[in-house]
Design a protein around this nucleic acid. Structure first.
Lengths: 127, 127, 127, 127
DNA sequence: GTGGTCTAGACCACT
DNA sequence: GTGGTCTAGACCACG
């Protein structure tokens, strides 16, 4: 289910975080679904358990998952994002967008490609 | 002209790279314009000369600027981006977009915000 | 294994780059082999760690090696060179060849000496 | 007659040296031919007179040209190269040849390309 | 004056 | 442990 690129420059724990969020967006994981244990996931992905633990800790901090001692780790309910939160994330796109504009790509072209990417990310909205 | 956020997690040399590209996009810097010397910019930004040099090296590697020995550093002509190049950069947006979708934001809302950001980045095209 | 000539006019980091490529050509290093760590190589060669890091960075940029965070640095697969690439490298030989011809050396003599040099560079292909 | 690439990474004074030697090899310049004065050449090439002077000094050191005070600068006779000299120059080709071999190019292909390059450099041998 | 290279030594993120 | 970033300060080649 999860695929780790050991050679990528994005840290492994980040890749895990992204993929779990992606799985939620795509509907593969839903609220109260149980996640594999740190040990199990680490052996599945063939990475260091500490790395998985770090990802889970960060996801818990972000209230994406919730750990119940003795029971396991579960997908938490989705929390609302406030306007400020959204703007902050949008801002993170600026460097790459600047690169694209630097290369002379038209705004419309960029927007179209992002639209494609969004539907690719989006999973089945008619679940 | 350039502003460095010393507290940011993006490395200083990266911030310099982004800002120079941004200045080109905005039209503040044009082909053959001379950039401040390494020493000058480093004292302007209050960072170490090596850090500025690292940014300049990377920009030269990316063919954004060109350095002429003993003379200084200049804005190079803009080089074409091929389709593959563009797709690769677009891909870099995926993690943030996934986050936004995870928060339940509509595609249209996201696209509108990006549109705003693009025009903000874009400088005055009718110069 | 690696030998640095501190007095040479070729920068140390360049010498490191050349020697690692040479080791690959000679078959001493193969794909996925781990290179000595920056710290280790720097102490082996008695040069500053930053100098080794610079060499490794450049080699990574050239896709000769690949660094995996927290793990180490490894020999990457060899990437194809296109015709343009080759011609560009061949061109770099021109100044020295001109010098030799200036001294009145015959083309055949030059070619023979290069042939010798090539087999010296090449390592044992029948390993 | 001479062409300087201000953006090249080879120092300008080096480019001048190379081109004068090349002109001799090609037969455009012969023993006792007079070279333009430092001032004249510097204005022809639009470079700093110091740069031309540096090239001439180096060429004189290498006994390629000879300066007669009050008269001008002339092409000197060609001096014999000893075996050691030649080997030293041949050695300078090693890094580029290693790169080519690293890319998997066959010795024969390399030698053929060098052969082409040599005849290109060579000028008219039947003068 | 310009950028390029190098040393010495520090702190941090990742595994 | 690994590499990445940054500072401080030195020397050199080039124009």
């Amino acid at each position: 289910m999860f695929k780790i690129d050991i050679k990528s420059s994005t840290p492994i724990y980040m890749q895990i975080i992204e993929q779990i969020k992606s799985a939620v967006v795509k509907g593969y994981l839903k609220q109260d679904d149980m996640l594999p244990s740190v040990r199990k996931l680490s052996s599945m992905l063939e990475v260091n358990p500490n790395t998985v633990a770090k990802a889970y800790n960060e996801l818990e901090r972000q209230k994406v998952i919730i750990t119940v001692r003795g029971r396991g780790t579960f997908i938490d309910e989705v929390h609302q994002a406030d306007e400020e939160d959204i703007q902050e994330k949008i801002r993170k796109l600026a460097p790459v967008l600047t690169e694209l504009k630097y290369k002379g790509i038209d705004d419309d072209v960029i927007l179209n490609k992002i639209k494609e990417l969004l539907s690719e990310i989006g999973g089945n909205e008619n679940d």
